[in-house]
Design a protein around this nucleic acid. Structure first.
Length: 1038
RNA sequence: GGACAGUUAGCUCAGUGGUAGAGCAUCGCCUUCACACGGCGGGGGUCACAGGUUCAAGCCCUGUACUGUCCA
């Protein structure tokens, strides 16, 4: 064994061995435990977020496998419709190859499959390298034939049950990707824009009187989207708005400028009379609210846009074919130039300087909007153009953009497929429940009833809020990559839904062609929303719709580990489908992880250039290579210098290789419930060091039981079996009792009399039981951070820092029984904590366990399949723990003196003890050898009360004084300063505590146990203070 | 506008009623025979702010400020 742990040497080998030996597959016995991997998108490679979640899932999987469950971790990937199609299109563009449109559907899909193969291959390699113990024999892809069959099946069944409908409705349209998307794929971003106020002339010379008493022949409407005015079919006011009631009552109409269409003035509660002028232009075909209002008032729908969001041909000639933004400018300019409506120009003499006197209250309100939005900046003065443009003000508005393309979306009228999630009864009028009762409510119930538990719990609020405000789900996409919708149309446009064309024809006699004539059918060109295939992931990967053994055994799965960002997209929808088709939840727990962020707390993204490949942390990467990775293939190459600077700042020396185990441990340690994770490379390096510590502690143990040569580090041959160089027979556990000197195994009978356990042995065994109990509790609560902290603290600070040190004097001593006890304990405790650590650090634990296990009497072939350690409370030994605490205190005292007096660590010290209690004296006698060895003492002498102490530096252990004679060497000032510091702190505490005890409130109100504790503490502190004062006096007297 | 989360040592974070903890960073000493990716010792915090409950508050309650996220 090398002095330094080399992760790369062991990782590759164990991945292969475990997989080849079938260790990742379910055992076939025990209670079922299953985790369905959230299938990564085949859009590229895995990022830190995946590595983080996979670490959590693998820890859970390995833990439950070791704990005896029949454990399945189901792997697979997601075709990720839009995302993947976009990646492939971009790659074609970068490579200068023909575009999607040029290739045509079939050839383009060949390209996507090619990419899928590459991406899924990379992903599976990454998963393998991280040591994730997924059952590869069950690997799935959302477009596998069997999976696709399930997707079709769940669509058809929902359709048969009247829960899916097709309809012409306003949807969110992405004019770049040219597809509909669901509400969830829309991101609303606040952006700077304008609010244009237009004068719409009243038809037939009608007039009204505004709040200022002016008689006007026009009404003013405000809009953020002038181009949509071409599709206006009404102007709306509030029914109780006195300004317009006469107009409404007289059925006055408006002449829509530029189009010369007469449109109605309607009254509707939707209008906020206090906003703007209280008049709203209504464009039912291009706004969700206007659409709803239009439905109420039976307004015409005039679509003015093409699929690419240019102006279509249903509008006056000058605007046809213009891009929407070009059209916007032209429309504003044309309105400004329009002087054909004589009644509309009375206000043109308005002087901007005296605006406030002349503007009606509605205008002032608009100005305030501009002001507030500018967040403290001086509001831009409104502009008062001429013609039909009344006013233009700056305005902040929410702009809807597609989450994938970033394009500004249009509400657009198209035929789409929807899942009904809102109706009480079936949309088609047939008897039966509608989507709200059949799908949405059961999904709410599943969490409300506690059958699904969110960890952390607060995420269920988010879940409920969404489900309680849910809209129908648009599941069709105008893409090529995905599951073709199983619907067929005849020439008359009738639609038939079925599992296949054959089924459709068989189902509808008129299509069957019994007379030989088969009417032509063409399949729907569209594909499903990706989430309308991953919503059955927990079922379909187990063989649904067939009721397979796997489905029976592992459905519902045990826990879903995922990010909060897909609670709506995926989590809720799996619950819906699971409840609907299996009448059961898809998982019992949902463990929501935080996001992995960069060191500044920013989300990692390619465009920001702050992504990290987990394997670059594992294997290390130079700064130059990292910069190169982050700045190639950028959508916007201009950002490269910025990215380079930030990368150089975050990782000035690149990233050091830490190995898989250290990265996994880092993730575990940072997995605090409900918080995002700022990735910290220094932390990972710290845990790399931890691996090295583990490695060397194990070397120490192996050397001490004689399995490793202390000089050369070479494994000694045979009797210790594997790890010793191949061959070698398995010995019984007593072999570890063989002394280092004689390597010929001399089996010794086990049991009393053949070894003795020291206080240190009993202490570490006791501490181990507590660690085991903590580990179980932390797994139960998904507290991987606390689990990691417990393991780290035990292994480094207890096992290495104290226990190993405490065995050294024993090993150098002559008590053979004690040596055997120490060797036995060293090996066995090590073997146990290797197993405790294994779920987080699989590789190093396996590598070491192979060598250690035989010495601890273990015969298994892999640590992976060994039982997870369980606490045995009978082995908790509080007395031993108290003894070791005392011993640590003693050591600390001596070390402090050594440190502060600048005494070289190697110089043996004579120590005198004053004020020792009987218990102290007994412990001194018992631990003299250990303490002398560890503290490098020359001697320990307990003074009698009458004995005069020489000039010394002093430490306190309770009221016992540990004296290190300084024989004239003492730095009087330094020692006095040290004592003064101790004293000041003590006096402060004492004062506070005495005040507390003197308070009637405390004495009367606090529980007796607390008061007793406080009294004891005060007594203790008084004694210590007295000792210190005494010591101070004696030093001063020198 | 609503909801949720956060605010603790220079940094990243634990800590759900009994005198503030870890890792990293920092300072000093030490190439002691498992480990310098190490050992030993030290310094460093009025727990965002203001009230309240309690014998006792980082922790419970109310409010405020700031940060972040989601929703409208």
């Amino acid at each position: 064994m090398d002095k330094t742990f080399d992760p790369s040497r062991v990782e590759a080998q164990w991945c292969q061995t475990w997989e080849a030996d079938g260790c990742y597959q379910p055992s076939g016995s025990g209670k079922p435990y299953s985790i369905m991997i959230p299938p990564p998108n085949v859009t590229g490679t895995l990022h830190m977020g995946h590595a983080f979640q996979h670490t959590v899932m693998d820890a859970l999987t390995r833990y439950h496998r070791m704990a005896g469950f029949d454990t399945l971790w189901q792997p697979g990937t997601d075709h990720a419709g839009i995302a993947t199609q976009m990646v492939v299109e971009r790659n074609l563009k970068l490579a200068g190859e023909p575009s999607r449109a040029e290739l045509g559907r079939e050839k383009f899909l060949d390209k996507v499959w090619e990419w899928k193969k590459y991406s899924a291959g990379t992903i599976s390699q990454q998963i393998r390298r991280m040591g994730s113990s997924v059952d590869w024999s069950r690997e799935a892809f959302t477009m596998d034939p069997a999976y696709s069959k399930a997707v079709v099946e769940h669509f058809v069944r929902l359709h048969e049950d009247g829960l899916i409908y097709r309809g012409k409705r306003l949807v969110n349209w992405d004019p770049v990707l040219q597809t509909a998307i669901s509400d969830l794929e829309v991101v609303q971003e606040e952006e700077n824009g304008k609010l244009w106020h237009f004068r719409y002339p009243l038809a037939n010379g009608a007039t009204y009187v505004n709040a200022e008493g002016e008689t006007l022949g026009y009404i003013v409407v405000a809009t953020t989207r002038p181009e949509t005015m071409l599709g206006d079919t009404a102007v709306a006011v509030h029914p109780e708005d006195p300004r317009y009631s006469a107009l409404v009552a007289s059925k006055a109409t408006v002449m829509l400028p530029l189009c010369n269409r007469e449109i109605a003035i309607v009254a509707d509660d939707y209008v906020d009379p206090a906003f703007g002028t209280g008049c709203v232009k209504i464009t039912p075909a291009h706004d969700f609210n206007d659409y709803a209002l239009g439905q109420r008032h039976k307004l015409a729908l005039i679509n003015v846009l093409t699929k690419a969001a240019a102006i279509n041909d249903d509008v006056p000639e000058p605007y046809r074919g213009l891009d929407r933004m070009v059209a916007r400018k032209k429309i504003v300019a044309d309105l400004e130039a329009d002087t054909t409506y004589p009644n509309c120009h009375s206000g043109e003499s308005r002087n901007p300087e005296s605006e406030s006197a002349q503007l009606d209250p509605g205008f002032r309100r608009d100005d305030e909007v501009g002001e507030g939005a500018a967040a403290g900046a001086k509001p831009a003065k409104p502009v008062y153009p001429r013609g039909l443009v009344d006013k233009i003000v700056d305005h902040k508005l929410k702009v809807p953009r597609g989450d994938r393309s970033g394009a500004v979306l249009e509400p657009y009228l198209t035929d789409q497929w929807f899942v009904d999630l809102t109706r009480e009864s079936r949309h088609d009028g047939q008897p039966g429940k509608g989507g709200r009762l059949a799908i949405t409510q059961p999904a709410i119930d599943a969490v409300e009833s506690g059958r699904i538990r969110f960890v952390p719990d607060n995420w269920k609020t988010t879940y409920f809020h969404w489900l309680n405000n849910i809209q129908d789900w648009c599941i069709s996409r105008q893409l090529w990559w995905g599951h073709r919708i199983p619907a067929w149309y005849d020439d008359a446009g009738n639609v038939y839904v079925g599992r296949s064309e054959e089924e459709v024809r068989a189902k509808y006699p008129e299509l069957g062609g019994s007379d030989g004539s088969r009417p032509a059918l063409r399949q729907d060109e569209d594909v499903f929303d990706t989430w309308f295939s991953s919503d059955i992931w927990p079922m379909a990967t187990l063989g649904w719709p067939d009721n397979t053994e796997a489905l029976k055994k592992w459905y519902p799965s045990s826990v879903l580990v995922t990010g909060f960002d897909i609670i709506f997209f995926w989590v809720a929808r799996m619950v819906m489908m699971g409840q609907y088709f299996q009448q059961d939840v898809p998982f019992k727990d949902v463990f929501i992880t935080g996001l992995v962020r960069d060191p500044e707390g920013n989300k990692m993204s390619k465009s920001k250039g702050n992504v990290l490949d987990p394997l670059d942390v594992v294997d290390g990467i130079t700064l130059d290579a990292l910069i190169a990775k982050r700045t190639t293939g950028l959508m916007n190459p201009a950002t490269a210098p910025k990215i380079e600077a930030k990368t150089a700042k975050d990782y000035p020396k690149g990233i050091e290789a830490v190995g898989v185990d250290a990265l996994r441990f880092t993730f575990a340690a940072l997995a605090t419930n409900g918080r995002d994770v700022r990735f910290d490379a220094a932390r990972a390096e710290g845990y790399r060091n931890f691996c090295n510590k583990i490695w060397n502690a194990s070397r120490f143990v192996l050397i001490n039981v004689g399995a490793l040569d202390a000089e050369t580090g070479a494994e000694l041959p045979s009797p210790f079996g594997r790890g010793a160089g191949g061959e070698g027979t398995q010995l019984d556990e007593n072999s570890l009792l063989v002394s280092a000197e004689s390597l010929t195994p001399t089996p010794l009978p086990e049991g009393e009399g053949h070894y003795t356990l020291s206080t240190a042995d009993r202490w570490i065994i006791s501490r181990l039981q507590k660690l085991e109990a903590e580990a179980a509790a932390h797994f139960e609560a998904y507290r991987f951070d606390l689990l990691a902290a417990s393991l780290y603290q035990f292994i480094w600070n207890e096992y290495c820092d104290w226990y190993l040190e405490l065995t050294k004097p024993v090993m150098q001593g002559s008590d053979e029984l004690a040596k055997r006890g120490a060797r036995r304990t060293l090996v066995r405790v090590l073997e146990v904590w290797l197993r405790l650590l294994h779920p987080i650090m699989p590789f190093i634990t396996e590598e070491i366990w192979q060598k250690v296990a035989p010495l601890a009497g273990k015969t298994g072939s892999t640590i992976m399949l060994e039982p997870y350690p369980v606490a045995n409370s009978a082995r908790i030994d509080e007395a031993a723990e108290a003894d070791v605490e005392w011993l640590k205190g003693f050591m600390l005292g001596v070390r402090q003196i050594r440190g502060e007096m600048d005494i070289p660590p190697g110089k043996p010290l004579p120590v005198l003890i004053q004020n020792a209690s009987a218990a102290d004296a007994e412990r001194i006698a018992r631990f003299a050898a250990s303490v002398s060895f560890l503290a490098r003492l020359e001697s320990i002498r307990v003074l009698n009360a009458a004995d005069e102490a020489p000039q010394s530096a002093t430490a306190l252990l309770g009221s016992m004084k540990i004296l290190v004679p300084m024989a004239g060497l003492i730095d009087k000032a330094a020692e006095l300063a040290r004592l003064a510091k101790l004293k000041a702190k003590l006096e402060n505490d004492l004062k506070m505590n005495e005040a507390r005890l003197a308070s009637d409130k405390f004495v009367n109100g606090a529980p007796p146990a607390v008061i007793d504790k406080e009294r004891a503490r005060v007594a203790q502190q008084k004694a210590e203070l007295a000792t210190l004062t005494e010591q101070e006096a004696s030093i001063s007297a020198l």
